[in-house]
Design a protein around this nucleic acid. Structure first.
Length: 478
RNA sequence: GGCCACGUCGCCAAGUGGUAAGGCAGGGGUCUGCAAAACCCUUAUCGCGAGUUCGAUUCUCGCCGUGGCCUCCA
C-alpha cells in the first residue's frame, strides 16, 4: 500500500524490508494522567492500519505485523505529578497504564504486539547511549548529564524541515552551563534529590525523553524498520531527535516511512487542560460508545485535524446504527445481490494512504444495497458477510442486540411485567420482553392501539425498540 | 517572527484541471392502525482577491481565518 511519508512529503509504497513482515513502531503516552480522545484517535488509526495489513484480503495477501508501542513510564511529568499527588511516580505510571489498557480493550485497540516500558529497558537504553558516545555524537558533563550534540549530526532537521541555524532558542531557560548548545538534548539525566534513578556508567540517573523510543524501537524491530508513527505534534523535537540518535548509534536509516496523525479538536477548539475542554477516553466511551468514536475517527483523513463535536458524534451513533441494521435485515434464499466489486474497491482505497473515509462510503453503499435487496426479496446473506468482514478490518464490531440485553435494567422490566399482569416462570429480561410483545400483538389484533402504543413506548424507555413487520414484531436493544 | 497543515452543503467529511463521495440533520413520497426502520426523490459551484489556462474548487501568488510545531504534548 501507499502511505504519505512525512520525511519526503510524498506518497510512498510500503515495501517491507523483510518479505511478508511489517515492523511498526508508534509512540505511546507518558501515563501521568488519564488518556483523552486524542490518544485514542492516534492509536485507533494505527490499529486500523495494522488490522488492514494483517487482513488476508489486502493486496499483499496479508502481512505478519510486529506493532510496538511504548510507555514512557518515567519522565519529568510523572515526577512532577507524582510529587503533587504524593505518590511514587512509577506506581502512578503503573496505575495509569492499567487504566489506559483497560480502555484500549474497550476501544478494541487490539493489534499491538509489544508494549515496552522505559523502566524495564534501562540496560538497552544505556547501551544505545554508549554507542552514541563511542561514535562521537555525545558528551558527558561533570554533573553526570549526557547530551546529544545536535551539530554533529549533519542531517538534523530532515524530518521537520528545520535548519539548526534558524532555531530561536531561549537561552535563559538553560540550567546546565556545561551544555554546549541549547539545541543539545539529554540522553541521560543525572539524578536529582528524591527522583527515581538507575545506575549507569555515568552515575545514577534516568534516560532522557527521546532515547527510550529509539532504543525500544530498534530493540524490538531492528536497526531499520518499516513505519514509525505518532501525532504530528511529535515531529519536532521528539521524532527529529529519535532519528538523530538512532542513526548516530547505528549509522543506518532508522525508519523508512514516518506516518503522522492529525490532532483532535473538540467543538472546533484545541483540546487543552487550560481550556478545560479535554475529553477523556472514559468519558467518550461513556457518552458515545467505542464504535461511534471509531467511526468518527475513520470518517476523516488521518493526517488532518479531526473536529469532534457533539452533533458529529450524534451523527456517528446514528450512522453506526444504520450499518448495524443492515447486518440484521432478513435475507431471502434465492438470487444473490451483486457484490463482486465491493472488496476490490475497499482494498483500492485502503491501499491509497489508508483512506478510511472512502472505505466507509463504500460500506454505506453496500448497506444500502443490502437493505434494498432485502426489501426486494434477494439473498443478501453473502453481502452481509462481506460487510461484517470489512467492518472487522476497520475494527468496528457491530454489537448484536442479544449482547446488549444484559445491559438493560431488569428491575424496571419486572415492574413493567407486573403492571401488565404478566405471569411467567422465568423472569429473564428476554422472556419479559417477549411476553410484552405478545401482549401488545394481541392488543393490536383487538384494535386496542392505545394499549399497544403504551407498551411500545414503555419498552422504548427501557431501550428496547420495536419494529412491526408483516410477519412479526422485531425487537432490538438500542 | 519562522516552519507546516487546513478552510468544501445546517453539522461531520471525501474528492477532482472540464461544473463536487458518504454519514447526520432537513423537505417530499412509498410502506405502516400509527410509528419506527428501510427504500425512492430532493438540498452546495468549493474562505476572499488576482494570475496561469480554452476551462480552476482543484495549479501559482497575496490576503483573511483556524490548527500544529519552534525543545511539555497522540
Amino acid at each position: 500500500m501507499r502511505i504519505i511519508n512525512t520525511l519526503t512529503g510524498e506518497l510512498e509504497e510500503l515495501d517491507p524490508s523483510q518479505k511478508g513482515l511489517v515492523n511498526i513502531y508508534v509512540c505511546g503516552v507518558t501515563p501521568y494522567a488519564d488518556a483523552h480522545v486524542g490518544h485514542a484517535m492516534s492509536l485507533m488509526v494505527y490499529d486500523v492500519l495494522v488490522r488492514y495489513l494483517r487482513w488476508p484480503g489486502n493486496k499483499s495477501g496479508g502481512y505478519k505485523v510486529n506493532f510496538v508501542s511504548n510507555y514512557t513510564d518515567i519522565d519529568d511529568k510523572l515526577i512532577e505529578r507524582g510529587s503533587f499527588l504524593d505518590k511514587d511516580p512509577i506506581q502512578l505510571a503503573e496505575d495509569q497504564i492499567n487504566k489506559w489498557e483497560d480502555e484500549q480493550k474497550r476501544l478494541r485497540i487490539t493489534s499491538i504486539t509489544h508494549r515496552p516500558r522505559v523502566t524495564e529497558e534501562i540496560g538497552a537504553i544505556c547501551e544505545s547511549i554508549q554507542k552514541i558516545l563511542d561514535n562521537g555524537f555525545g558528551y558527558i558533563t561533570s554533573t553526570g548529564n549526557v547530551y546529544f550534540r545536535v551539530r554533529s549530526q549533519p542531517n538534523y532537521g530532515k524530518l521537520s524541515r528545520r535548519s539548526i541555524d534558524d532555531a530561536q532558542v531561549d537561552l535563559s531557560a538553560e540550567d546546565d552551563e556545561e551544555k554546549e548548545s541549547p539545541l543539545d538534548f539529554a540522553l541521560w539525566k543525572a539524578k536529582k534529590q528524591g527522583e527515581p534513578s538507575w545506575d549507569s556508567k555515568w552515575g545514577q540517573g534516568r534516560p532522557g525523553w527521546h532515547i527510550e523510543c529509539s532504543t525500544m524501537a530498534q530493540k524490538y524491530l531492528g536497526d531499520t524498520f518499516d513505519v514509525h508513527g505518532g501525532g504530528v505534534d511529535l515531529i519536532f523535537p521528539h521524532h527529529e531527535n529519535e532519528i538523530a540518535q538512532a542513526e548516530a548509534a547505528t549509522g543506518k536509516t532508522f525508519a523508512n516511512i514516518w506516518m503522522h496523525n492529525g490532532m483532535v479538536l473538540y467543538q472546533g477548539e484545541k483540546m487543552s487542560k487550560s481550556l478545560g475542554n479535554v475529553v477523556s477516553v472514559a468519558e467518550a466511551i461513556d457518552r458515545w460508545g467505542s464504535d461511534a468514536l471509531r467511526l468518527f475517527v475513520l470518517n476523516s483523513y488521518y493526517r488532518g485535524p479531526n473536529n469532534l463535536t457533539d452533533e458529529a458524534m450524534a451523527g456517528s451513533i446514528r450512522a453506526l446504527d444504520r450499518l448495524r441494521r443492515a447486518l440484521r435485515v432478513p435475507s431471502i434464499s434465492g438470487e444473490e445481490i451483486a457484490t463482486e466489486e465491493v472488496k476490490a474497491q475497499f482494498v483500492e482505497v485502503m491501499e491509497d494512504d489508508l483512506s478510511t473515509a472512502k472505505a466507509l462510503a463504500i460500506l454505506f453503499d453496500l448497506a444500502r444495497d443490502i437493505n434494498r435487496g432485502s426489501n426486494e426479496g434477494y439473498d443478501v446473506s453473502g453481502a452481509q458477510e462481506i460487510l461484517k468482514e470489512l467492518l472487522t478490518v476497520l475494527g468496528l464490531e457491530i454489537l448484536e442486540s442479544s449482547d446488549l440485553v444484559k445491559d438493560i435494567d431488569r428491575t424496571s422490566l419486572v415492574k413493567l411485567a407486573q403492571v401488565h399482569n404478566i405471569v411467567i416462570e422465568d423472569l429473564t429480561s428476554e422472556n419479559i420482553i417477549l411476553a410484552l410483545i405478545k401482549l401488545r400483538s394481541e392488543a393490536r389484533e383487538a384494535h386496542n392501539y392505545s394499549l399497544a402504543d403504551e407498551i411500545r413506548s414503555q419498552l422504548q424507555s427501557q431501550r428496547v425498540e420495536l419494529e412491526d413487520t408483516i410477519e412479526e414484531t422485531k425487537w432490538s436493544v438500542i
